[in-house]
Design a protein around this nucleic acid. Structure first.
Length: 267
DNA sequence: ATGTCAGCCGGAGGCTGA
């Protein structure tokens, strides 16, 4: 099965683009970030017409995440545990039912965590400590999930450039929250819990990016960064069949500044 | 590292967040 993540930068502004990509890429599960919509305003019927079950965790104006799944989902979790006072809609998780053809077989549960990690800019404001605290909550939650020894994917817009190779011009990012040593260290700590990062496990090339700024001709110059990631638990990695980035989508009309990233797992 | 975009409020365009 194919599971994808995409920061669409607004579901209303990006509805046609998102639907076109779903028709082309036909993921079984799609995790969306920055829907920028409340749950009641999410155009769920448009996705249901394509055969998806829809779960959202939205808020007004900013942030917001959603999971689309061809099969039913259960055990939906909205919000990252660990801070009841956090009002930003940045995490949704669900258990994905196996496809029909394996439902009577030995398919193990698949759980998917869809995240929109705080950007953290500008440095020197409360935004950066919020990012780091959020990452610590994510690490705590991921540790608990890994202890369940299930197939588990943690995917989304991490707003972290893991390594210098993940930016066309790393020197441009040294004063940015996405490339701070603390951000990179927390991402490494998350990986170190036992995850495999899907794209780098199959592609160690340079110039592998998932985001190009709208400004300054970043796309035309391929001045990109790699900040959207798919992390796989050991049990998910056992069935890992491949990963990719739908770079061409950045060249479409009315693009998001991010592009989809996907993995394929044995059903 | 700015040649932009989305959404809010409110009814134009400035502000915020990215």
């Amino acid at each position: 099965m194919k599971i994808a993540t995409w920061n669409i930068n607004g579901v209303k502004a990006r509805l046609d683009t998102t639907l076109a990509w779903l028709r082309e890429a036909t993921p079984d599960v799609a995790c969306l970030q920055e829907i920028k919509s409340v749950d009641e305003g999410f155009p769920r019927e448009a996705f249901e017409e394509l055969g998806y079950h829809v779960e959202t965790h939205g808020q007004k104006g900013f942030n917001g995440v959603a999971i689309l799944s061809r099969t039913p989902v259960s055990e939906v979790l909205r919000g990252l545990p660990g801070d009841d006072s956090d009002e930003q809609a940045r995490y949704i998780e669900a258990r994905i039912e196996p496809p029909n053809e394996t439902r009577d077989g030995d398919a193990r549960p698949l759980r998917v965590g869809c995240l929109y990690l705080p950007n953290g800019n500008p440095l020197g404001t409360e935004k950066f400590p919020y990012k780091l605290a959020w990452m610590q909550r994510l690490i705590a939650h991921a540790r608990a999930r890994l202890a369940d020894e299930e197939r588990f994917l943690l995917l989304g817009d991490y707003n972290v450039i893991p390594q210098p190779i993940d930016a066309r011009n790393p020197q441009n990012w040294v004063d940015d929250a996405l490339f701070q040593p603390e951000s990179r260290s927390a991402f490494r700590a998350l990986l170190g819990l036992g995850f495999t990062e899907a794209v780098r496990s199959v592609n160690t090339d340079k110039d592998v990016y998932t985001f190009w700024d709208y400004q300054a001709g970043a796309w035309q110059k391929n001045n990109g960064i790699r900040i959207d990631h798919v992390l796989m638990s050991p049990e998910a990695t056992d069935g890992f069949e491949g990963a990719g980035i739908d770079v061409h989508v950045r060249g479409w009309e009315k693009p998001s500044d991010h592009v989809p990233v996907w993995v394929r797992l044995a059903a």
